[in-house]
């Protein structure tokens, strides 16, 4: 399902997919404050992200999982204890 990635020296990155939020012209400071949660009942923002899965490096796109239930978990970092 996920596209396999070749491990080069550059660190691959992903990010949100789709339309960028419109520039509303607010001041930079105001925008920093507005770190809002997504809303339940709304579409989960699509993204791509490089990752490690069963011995391979892969590039995962959330929308490839349409038709399945997904648990998306964020955590502070590898080798943290909890």
């Amino acid at each position: 399902m996920a596209e396999q990635l070749n491990a080069g020296c550059a660190r691959p990155t992903g990010g949100p997919v789709g339309e960028a939020p419109a520039d509303t012209g607010e001041k930079q400071e105001e925008r920093k404050e507005a770190s809002k949660m997504v809303l339940i009942g709304r579409k989960a923002p699509d993204f791509t992200a490089p990752g490690f899965h069963q011995g391979k490096f892969v590039n995962v796109k959330l929308s490839e999982y349409l038709g399945k239930w997904v648990l998306l978990c964020f955590y502070p970092g590898d080798f943290t204890f909890v």
Binding site: T13, G14, G15, P16, K32, S35, K36, M37, V38, K43, A44, P45, D46, F47, A49, L62, S63, Y65, L66, G67, K68, W69, V70, L71, L72, C73, F74, Y75, P76, G77, V82
Partner: peptide, 27 residues
Amino acid sequence: KVGKVYGVYDEEAGVETRGRFIIDPDG
């Protein structure tokens, strides 16, 4: 970048908090 969109990125600490999202088959 993705954590910011979902609202779980802690700018000060530079890490993501323990956010868990249940996404249904329609996304």
